[in-house]
Design a protein around this nucleic acid. Structure first.
Length: 372
RNA sequence: GGGCAGGUGGCAGAGUGGUCAAUUGCACCAGGCUGUAAACCUGGCCUCUUCGGAGUUCGGGGGUUCGAAUCCCUCCCUGCCCA
């Protein structure tokens, strides 16, 4: 076994636990910053660590196209290559099946991409997706899946699930790296019948961890939040549960309430680069003229490097001037905010007060958003 | 004093008789971003508007014309060259 997961506390459906990987321990619930191309954009690994991160995400599709998974293996694996000694989870390229839909064709054999960089052909079969991730040497690899869009009809969802199940089995069979765990991905959109069938099959294959994919891909936030509790409950109790690609702070708390342990999302880093920071009072758009002479930190009471040393007026200036430190500082704050939220959530679950905590937080975010 | 070039929306800069409230870029204003083709993308940016339009604009004034940012006269201003 290369992965140990133990639950330390429960509070309703919410759980607090601990996942031990070859490269370190991950307390759950936990948020994983996204480092698609072997970097959390704009931040050094030390900045990411100091913001509170313990585990990062990397990407199969992007890293095999550039610089190449074999090159990374030759240089000591992804951890050494990107100078991140902690745990890494790699996504399989299944999300690119969705996000780069115009660049690919898909059959039961696998997904064939036309590189978004130079147009070269990339055959991403389940076996190849596993090989790439084994070359990268991540602690957790994901099975290749077909991620259909949020507005897909039942027939499309069923095809995607059938294919994802086929691929999951092939990935599992092909996977051989002992120091790496392979997680399965449940698809099915917001259709609970299809989700249930998909989860049942995957649970029967006995993976060390399970993810919910196919959320936040165009369906309404309400539809996702409504489906989450039942979908999370389909996954084994004693194994890590990962909600892929989600999301806004309130979505994370909803996921945790449903029994999710792991999250990843580009939102804190992408939105940070685009001048939006998350705070207890809701989102703050730093480009807005009202921050021009505001001496306050991004968020009062926040202990992150950005808040400890700089004003909103300064961040506003950096973004107006197009300075690269703006995206860096906003990303640092947003990651610290997300990771701090997870740390506080773990304490609240341990104390048995998660539901009240969640209700108060959500009310404050919404109230703050209205005042913006 | 003489010659030449030129004065267009916050700035730069197109347009040179009607399709011009006026290309485009920048600046500015607002919004979006959910397993990253995103330090990106949308929209707005003279005034009013019941969003159908309406009213004032292209240095000032006068004129030609059915019609002028575009042609003519005049005045003012700017740059370069000569004295």
């Amino acid at each position: 076994m290369s992965l140990y997961f133990t639950l330390a506390a429960r509070d309703g459906a919410a759980r607090a636990g601990r996942m031990t990987t070859p490269h370190g321990v991950v307390e759950t619930p936990q948020f994983m910053p996204v480092g698609t191309q072997g970097t959390v954009k704009g931040l050094t690994p030390e900045m990411v660590r100091d913001a509170g991160a313990t585990i990062l995400l990397g990407n199969t599709y992007h890293l095999t196209l550039r610089p190449g998974d074999e090159l990374i293996a030759e240089l000591g694996g992804l951890h050494a290559f990107m100078h991140w000694p902690g745990p890494i989870l790699t996504d399989s390229g299944g999300f690119q099946v969705f996000s780069l839909a115009t660049q690919r064709t898909i059959t039961d054999a696998g997904a064939t991409f036309r590189s978004h960089i130079d147009g070269a052909k990339l055959d991403l079969t389940p076996e190849r997706a596993v090989e790439i991730q084994q070359n990268l040497g991540s602690d957790i690899a994901m099975v290749l899946d077909e991620c259909p869009p949020g507005d897909a009809d039942q027939a499309v969802l069923q095809t995607a699930v059938r294919r994802s199940l086929l691929w999951a089995e092939r990935c599992k069979k092909h996977h051989s790296r002992k120091s790496q765990s392979l997680f399965a991905i449940v698809q099915g959109g917001t259709d609970l019948v299809i989700r249930r069938a998909c989860a049942k099959e995957l649970v029967g294959m006995d993976f060390p961890g399970y993810a919910l994919g196919g959320f936040s891909v165009g369906e309404s936030p309400e539809a996702m939040l409504a489906a989450l509790p039942e979908c999370a409950a389909l996954l084994p109790e004693g194994k890590p549960r990962y909600l892929m690609g989600v999301g806004r702070p309130e979505d994370l708390l909803a996921g945790i309430a449903a029994g999710i342990d792991l999250f990843d999302c580009v939102m804190p880093t992408r939105n940070g680069r685009n001048a939006l920071v998350f705070t207890d009072e809701g989102p703050v758009r730093l480009r807005n003229a009202k921050h021009r002479r505001d001496p306050a930190p991004l968020m009062s009471g926040c202990g992150c490097y950005a808040c400890a040393n700089f004003s909103r007026a300064y961040l506003h200036h950096l973004f107006q001037a197009g300075e690269m430190l703006g995206p860096t500082l906003a990303s640092i704050h947003n990651l610290a905010y997300y990771l701090g939220l997870m740390a506080e959530t773990r304490r609240q679950i341990a104390a048995g007060t998660f539901a009240e905590f969640r209700a108060a937080r959500v009310a404050r975010w919404r109230g703050g958003a209205i005042q913006q």
